[in-house]
């Protein structure tokens, strides 16, 4: 529990043993006007516990669908998705999901929104509130517990959504273009925040994004998707915390961009 608040208690070598994902030969299609539209074709991917994986690709390449399959909101047509060797069947608290639109409930305060994510926990109410308070500190929302979502800026609302997703202590955090709706400056700041939170938390994180720089700044592994399939999986040699200007990133960026243009 302390792991959430105290980054020092988690060392790089004590990465959690849980939170490993295996995606094997997954197919997924949708029926549109009676016609079958294939979105994912034979996608396979293995993600080690504690890894930060960035998935980049153009709109409509199926990257969000892949995330929703892992979240259990959709069901694949064939293939397997295994979390800690166990098949995923429906949503579960071991996986958190952050949407592009923050999806906070407008009728609840920030604190109530995060508390709601703890409704399946048996903890005493005071413990829950203390957890929520430390989560809000972690995401930099001290003093906003009693605010309603409409009183927050876009960046602050997304911070609250991150706190909500982290509250049940998921092994895997799924981020579906979490910063896509924010302005450029807020985006840069929240990228650094995400990095800090991940270093503090060290759960597996899988982020879908359009932004190649964002993918490179945060990811250990970059999955480049072309419509329906994985084009390439790249490992980023640089360590965390990362420097945006790290020269090792430049050739990777060029390679990703050429792959995206080719697709």
């Amino acid at each position: 529990m302390n792991a959430i608040i105290d980054p020092r208690s988690v060392q790089a070598d004590s990465a959690p043993a849980v939170g490993g994902l295996a995606i094997r030969h997954v197919h997924k299609g949708f029926d549109i006007d009676g016609r079958k539209l294939s979105v994912l074709e034979d996608v396979s991917l293995t993600i080690a516990p504690g890894q930060f994986v960035s998935i980049v690709g153009a709109s409509g390449c199926g990257k969000s669908t892949l995330l929703r399959l892992i979240a259990g909101l959709e069901r694949q047509d064939s293939g397997d998705i295994l979390l800690n060797e166990v098949p995923v069947a429906g949503p579960g608290l071991d996986r958190g999901l952050i949407f592009q639109d923050h999806r906070l409930f407008p009728w609840l305060t920030v604190e109530q929104n995060v508390l709601l994510a703890l409704s399946n926990s048996d903890e005493a109410a005071t413990d829950k509130r203390a957890r929520v308070a430390s989560l809000l500190t972690l995401v930099g929302l001290d003093g906003f517990a009693q605010a309603f979502p409409h009183q927050l800026s876009g960046g602050m609302a997304q911070r609250a959504a991150i706190a909500r997703a982290l509250a049940p202590q998921p092994q895997v955090l799924l981020l579906d273009e979490p910063l896509g709706a924010l302005d450029a400056l807020t985006r840069l700041r929240l990228q650094s925040e995400l990095q800090r939170i991940w270093l503090a938390q060290r759960s597996t994180m899988i982020m879908v994004t359009h932004d190649v720089d964002e993918a490179l700044f945060l990811g250990d592994v970059i999955v480049v998707m072309q419509p329906g399939r994985i084009a390439r999986i790249l490992h980023v040699p640089s360590t965390h915390p990362r420097d945006r200007a790290d020269p090792a990133l430049a050739p990777l960026k060029a390679e990703i961009l050429s792959l995206l243009h080719a697709g």
Partner: peptide, 21 residues
Amino acid sequence: KKHLEVGRVLMLSRWRSFRFI
């Protein structure tokens, strides 16, 4: 739908989905 989806991700019970969404 988007709010109900959050309820599914957070594994809210039927009563809580009714009460909070």
